[in-house]
Design a binder for these strands. Structure first.
Length: 783
DNA sequence: TGGAGCGTAATTTTT
DNA sequence: TTACGCTCCA
């Protein structure tokens, strides 16, 4: 081996070296958290290039822009010339679809629709098929269409397999939706994958050509691939078999978005001659943290066994904290951060994770109260802002004149006297002539319009033509700048700002600099173009921009925490119904995903890990009794005695409760025969964390002395079928009722809580819904 | 055209 | 509690 390779491999452990040195044939790298996976990938790419493979023949696919740009930087810093293809699945899709547009049934200038645009298209599809939302909720159709696309099912195929009325309705909407996208020369996010997969599958020669172009392919986070991505990966590597998949089944947390953990679990079946390498040594976390996480994940059945180990110190025990309520929890976390910061840590050493965003409120309050700087990691902030979308809409319509969604967004922003009636007329005309709205506008004489509307439309058209012309001879940044002034957006937002609105102008200025950046740091071999900029913008979330800012505590959901690491980690709200989330309690598979989610969060911690839960939590304005997550028990019962340390902050003066607390690791199932447990779906393990029935502080009774139903709404953990109170005293489960939108349904359960009677009602074709009866306008039909 | 007022529902969101 | 979408009215 030459000196360069020796030097490169010097810092790697045995399995890491083996993976980095692997050359031909399928390779699966099962990489535990913190096991140096990125190093292995980058080193392998560098060694391939060093060994004579042209970087242009290497393709690396990641899931996030961030991962892609990190990989690019690291590979280049190791001395590999530019030219390697490093893309996200979606960006690769755009590339290939533009290149082979006609074969994919597209025109190369297609627009990428985001969620909001999609919704608009969906609304139009409802209109076109004469479907009403009361028949089929838009989210249901939206989800179903997304599922189809993930699984490569076309509208025809879907229709062929539909027998229920709902399915047929969805099939028709799906079909109309696709037709509208085609008319507008637009694709949605899922299309970027589906159309690419189908392009490769249906055109063997293209797949073959690409196998030659990309002699080595590397796919990161393979556990998160969905069907479409799986097909893309397969088609791109089938001929040479040089696929290197890396990932960790234990960190698969996106099944709900179509990711199929079986893709990675069955890799060896798909590629029988695959080499499998496990990276089990962890370089991130202290021993006890790792052990606790390992014990938890060992409870999953759908996995490939892995033994995580570390040479690092055992470190401090993992803390499990119990609180009376969420406020105490937040306070304590804030206090702990404060204290440790005073002892020398930086605020940016800390992260707080939670299952759902709604939890962040209380935590923020507590941090603010103590003057602790924090930042919330939210994806998709910047480009979702109204002002940004307004400005982009103008650019989009210029780039793709068929983009009706964009046109509707900006035609009357700022207001130009073009009202609803006018737009309806234009749309009717457009539908009639099967022409884009811009065409209709430019031949507006055909539509009978009122004076001000006609004037407004003329003004709008003039702006478009002007900006279009300007764009021909100017940079994108300058074009945006010009657009802002010419369109009146600048004036409009300036006025808004002066009357006390947000500083939207600053954001628009940021958009201009984003365009400058795009033009300067051209990484693709394409010329910078308006289309290219818009593509970049649609594929980018500002997760990539916001990066862990120095000096701030980071707050984020467990999902967003994946791939990050922090010296000190708090996971708040480790409660039954929260983590695992109530919506996942239905199936064991879903609970396993929640367990993986918890595992992901825990393994982000380097030195200290705190898991906390509260006995009561303010949820949707209601104080709701909670109990510890089963995961806490799983961690404790598996791990050695000194691994986890429990701390009870509920009431330090009541010894009997401390007794229970101290007892909680000892076995013995709660008999739990009462309704409380059955009703709330509290697991046996978790129930041990609850106080005894004779504990005065614990039970909650509503006014009429009926036990309060735990606040798990909906189907996930149906409370016992009780009776209503007050005017609903004689309403019972099983009765038929009528709801004004959903029609006739039957009561699944009914219960008075906090003076409001709630009921879950099952409707044919709609499913189960929960209502507050006082507000829902539900009429009783009989038993 | 825009805003008030009501009804409704409420995980997670790499792109 | 809170946020959003829709309807209706000024």
């Amino acid at each position: 081996m030459d000196a360069f390779s020796e030097k490169l491999l010097a810092g790697l452990n045995e399995p890491q070296r083996a993976a980095a040195l692997h050359r031909n044939g399928p390779l699966l790298v099962l990489a535990g958290p913190g096991s140096g996976k990125t190093r292995v990938i980058t080193h392998r790419a560098v060694l391939l290039a060093h060994g004579g493979v042209n970087p242009r023949n290497i393709l690396a696919i990641t899931f996030t822009n961030k991962a892609a740009s990190e990989m690019r930087t690291r590979i280049e810093s190791l001395g590999v010339a530019r030219g390697m293809w490093i893309y996200t699945f979606h960006a690769l899709g755009v590339r290939l679809l533009r290149e082979f547009a006609p074969l994919a049934g597209l025109q190369p200038g297609f627009t990428i629709y985001d969620d909001a645009d999609q919704k608009q298209v969906l609304a139009d599809a409802y209109e076109a098929t004469g479907t009403r939302e009361s028949m089929l909720r838009a989210e249901v159709a939206h989800g179903a269409i997304g599922d189809c696309k993930n699984r490569l099912i076309t509208p025809d195929e879907y229709l062929a397999n539909s027998d229920f009325p709902d399915h047929i309705a969805i099939a028709r909407i799906y079909e109309a939706y696709e037709q509208i996208l085609r008319q507008r020369n637009a694709v949605d996010f899922d299309d970027l994958l589906m159309k690419t997969a189908l392009l490769l599958r249906r055109n063997a020669h293209i797949a073959e050509e690409l196998n030659i172009r990309f002699q080595y392919s590397l796919i990161d986070e393979y556990q998160d691939t969905n069907r479409a991505q799986y097909v893309i990966a397969r088609e791109l590597t089938q001929h040479h078999g040089n696929i290197c998949a890396t990932g960790d089944p234990d960190q698969s947390i996106y099944a709900w978005r179509g990711a199929d953990i079986n893709n990675i679990l069955a890799f060896e079946r798909d590629y029988p001659d695959a080499t499998v390498i496990r990276l089990e040594q962890n370089y991130r976390s202290h021993g006890r943290i790792l052990e606790a996480a390992d014990k938890l994940i060992a409870c999953n059945t759908q996995r490939k066994p892995k033994t995580l180990w570390t040479e690092r110190d055992a470190g401090e025990p993992v803390q499990v904290w119990r609180f009376m309520n969420d406020r105490d929890e937040a306070e304590r976390i804030a206090a702990t951060i404060s204290e440790q910061q005073r002892q020398g840590r930086s605020f940016s050493d800390f992260a707080i994770f939670y299952r759902i965003n709604a939890i962040s409120r209380g935590l923020e309050d507590a941090l603010r109260h103590r003057g602790i700087p924090y930042q919330i990691a939210r994806g998709l902030e910047f480009y979702n802002r109204k002002e940004i979308k307004d400005a982009l809409a103008y650019l989009r319509i210029i780039a793709n004149p068929a983009d009706d969604v964009a046109l509707l967004r900006c035609i009357n922003t700022p207001t130009r006297g073009i009202g609803k009636t006018t737009l309806e007329r234009l749309m009717a005309e457009g539908a009639n002539r099967r022409k884009p709205l811009l065409d209709v506008i430019r031949t507006a004489g055909a539509v009978n319009l009122s004076g001000p509307a006609a004037k407004g439309i003329a003004a709008f058209d003039a702006i478009l033509r002007d900006v279009e012309k300007f764009a021909e001879t100017n940079t994108i940044a300058d074009t945006i700048d010009h657009l802002l002034r010419r369109s009146g957006l600048e004036v409009m937002y300036k006025a808004e700002e002066e009357s006390g609105g947000e500083d939207r102008l600053a954001n628009l200025r940021e958009l201009v600099s984003a365009a400058t950046r795009y033009e300067e740091e051209q990484i693709d071999d394409e010329e910078p173009s308006l289309r290219g900029f818009l593509t970049r913008v649609s594929l980018q979330s500002d997760q990539d921009v916001v990066d862990p800012t120095r000096g701030c505590v980071m707050l984020m959901t467990l999902h967003t925490s994946k791939g990050l690491e922090f010296p000190v980690v708090f996971v708040a709200g480790v409660e039954h119904g929260m983590l695992p989330h109530e919506r996942s309690l239905r199936s064991e598979g879903d609970i396993e995903e929640e367990r993986r989610l918890c595992f992901v969060g825990m393994t982000r911690a380097e030195q200290r890990l705190y898991l906390s839960f509260a006995e009561n939590r303010l949820i949707r304005g209601q104080i709701t009794p909670r109990c510890a997550s089963q995961f806490l028990k799983e961690i404790q019962s598996g791990a050695g005695k000194d691994v986890v340390e429990s701390c009870d902050f509920t009431d330090r003066f009541r010894s009997e409760r401390r007794g229970i607390w101290a007892d909680q690791t000892a076995g013995g199932e709660d008999d739990g025969g009462g309704w409380g447990r059955a009703a709330s779906g509290i697991s046996p393990g978790a129930s041990r964390w609850r106080a005894r029935d004779d504990d005065p502080g614990e039970r909650v009774f509503s006014k009429d002395d009926a036990p309060q139903v735990r606040g798990f709404g909906k189907s996930a953990a149906p409370p016992a079928p009780l009776q209503g109170a007050g005017p609903y005293a004689d309403w019972k489960a099983g009765m038929l009722v009528r709801h004004k939108t959903y029609g006739v349904g039957s009561i699944i359960w009914i219960s008075p809580s906090s003076g409001q009677t709630r009921a879950a009602i099952k409707f044919a074709g709609v499913g189960e819904k929960t209502f507050v009866l006082d507000h829902a306008g539900i009429e009783r039909l009989g038993a």
